[in-house]
Write a protein that binds this DNA or RNA. Structure first.
Lengths: 333, 333
DNA sequence: TCGCGAATTGGCAGCGCTGCCAATCCGATC
DNA sequence: GATCGGATTGGCAGCGCTGCCAATTCGCGA
């Protein structure tokens, strides 16, 4: 990108001022509708702006004024529906306020998260929105030193830098296990994706196993597939698990995509759901409700997290917002 | 967002210069590794930067230098996997070049797209990436006037402002119809989502119907669900369509999500796939491959579009890049 | 008609950084 | 030991806009 051609000279505020026959400050006041100016000045400026096709330069505006009206957002991935949903809630709330979100994707790599944090901070954002609670020391140091408000989203299981919005993944895992227990399942397995990178899936599993241990049964077996979650991984994972441990009567999946793959595995193998094998997911994605037997899962308020996170930026902000989650009974367990 | 607190005074480049005992220009040269400076100067600056925790202010840098190293991106939605995939390819390629992408979401609303375009241009981006070819006159005018390079992604069916990267949706529709025809299906229906907002789905349908008309059969019936595409919409859509027109032997869906819902409808109603009813989707999403009978669909190189679009920004750029698509035979048709 | 506070307005100094230019330094050459 | 070309370096003028302040104008009652 070395030969990016800078756009030629564009219309500036002082061009507008000259064209409108007023001072620069007046143009600035009119454009931002801030301070007082006469109707006549307003009209002349508006006319000049339209005629010249003036587009303000926010770079200059933010530099001169007090800070940029933008916030930095770091998410680990865009491949998992969770984050687009989060961003949707976030950007909707944000640009209702006229704030731009600048998004960075870390690919679940803490080092990249740190690099992105530094890069985003260099735009002097009004706030920084991170995902999860686990960051490098450098990320935390940067965030603190910058003095901007920091909001950590989605996870609630641990201490945050500043404000935290989300739900407890551990509690989700516990609730899922309790649900399966209450339904009488005892030979329970787990199919997940790479939980070293997806720490929150790991926390759910921990909560899940916790409850099973307390009940004296424990997880019979688990199959962890490398790479990101997907239906194909879920299908392959369940098939491997069942080959190894055919006496299972229920399987917990790291999320709905994995569970969908598991459901397909059952269809293909002719295992009745939930007669032969019960399935339980996570996220409450739309397709779960369309399945012949609606998927048993946990619905998470992803849009709401985004909205709340945005709200935290304006208010003085509670330090910790639990948006909760809902167990969806479905019919696969 | 009125009470955003501007961060207090932060470390500036001249603080670093003073601390390192060198001039500002030297610090600037060292930081950007541009121009020549001695080892000793480099070391002292690096030390001072680390000690002070200096984070450069790109607002100032971009204002002073020639343009910001960022590009504006407008997508219609984040709910449809297509766009996150696109963004993934795009941001990966982009930040390999050290360029930030600033993303705006238009919700399929041309007016919002125009507003976003103006907002993004006010950051003086090096380029503007839009989705599709249909824009308001205002959007096109803004884009042209800004003098930045404009890349329109995904759609190839029509004239572009500048550079265009994607595939022909019409051709996808045609290929899909030809595929179903070749398989011998004659009583073909369509289940889609709101195609007034999703213009590209409309173009696919147009191409599809074109082929059927040429074959002298035509589309028997179609069901358009309001709102965005989803498995639930697909299921409800297919159920409505079959209730009205039970003699159908194949259904074309506006995309794989809709087709997944259709598949679930078949499962629930006991319609054999493809014995009783053939299904055909669009996008080539992962779950299609995990289905008991892999979904017949068209795979689109979404990541590739992102990559190519990013590549267009550096090279002088072909005006028009066709990334093509692939028909996946699957087993549902 | 005059006076006065309020409304409106323009000038100008930065915001933090980069680009340009002139000054200084270095080692090596004669 | 003086000279020369290149490597290094610092000063300083903006980039386009906003915030502050002083100047000007306006409206209206006395």
């Amino acid at each position: 990108m070395s030969d990016f051609q800078p756009p030629g000279r564009l219309v500036t505020l002082s061009d507008v001022a000259r064209a409108a026959g007023v001072g620069e400050s007046t143009v600035s006041r009119v454009l931002r509708n801030h301070g007082s100016y006469s109707k006549r000045a307003g009209a002349r400026v508006a006319e000049a702006v339209a005629r010249l096709g003036y587009v303000p330069n926010r770079l200059a505006g933010s530099l001169a004024g007090s800070g940029a009206r933008l916030v930095g957002i770091v998410v680990p991935s865009l491949a998992n529906v969770v984050f687009p949903d989060l961003l949707r809630g976030l950007t909707a709330a944000l640009d209702a306020e006229g704030v731009q979100g600048v998004i960075g994707v870390s690919d679940y790599d803490p080092e990249r998260e740190e690099a992105l944090t530094a890069a985003l901070l260099s735009w002097r954002p009004a706030a920084l929105l991170l995902t999860g609670l686990e960051h490098t020391l450098g990320t935390a140091a940067l965030a603190r030193a910058s003095g901007v408000r920091v909001v950590e989203m989605i996870d609630l299981d641990g201490p945050g830098i500043d404000t935290v919005v989300g739900f407890s993944n551990r509690a989700v895992g516990r609730a899922s296990a309790q649900f399966l227990r209450a339904r009488g399942y005892r030979r329970i397995g787990y199919v997940g994706h790479d939980c070293f990178s997806d720490l929150r899936a790991g926390k759910r599993l921990a909560g899940f196993e916790e409850v099973l241990s307390e009940a004296g049964i424990g997880l019979m077996d688990k199959e962890i597939r490398p790479g990101p979650s997907s239906a194909t991984a879920g299908r392959a994972g369940l098939e491997a698990l069942m080959a190894r441990c055919p006496e299972l009567d229920a399987v917990y999946f790291s999320n709905d995509d994995m569970a969908l793959g598991g459901y397909f595995a059952c269809l293909a193998a002719g295992w009745a759901v939930p007669g032969r094998l019960a399935l339980f997911g996570f996220n409450g994605l739309d397709f779960g409700a369309a399945m012949p037997q609606p998927l048993a899962t946990v619905r998470t308020p992803r849009l709401e997290i985004g909205r709340q996170a945005a709200a935290c930026l304006v208010g003085d902000g509670a330090k910790r917002i639990d948006v909760g989650f809902t167990v969806i009974e479905g019919a696969t367990a």
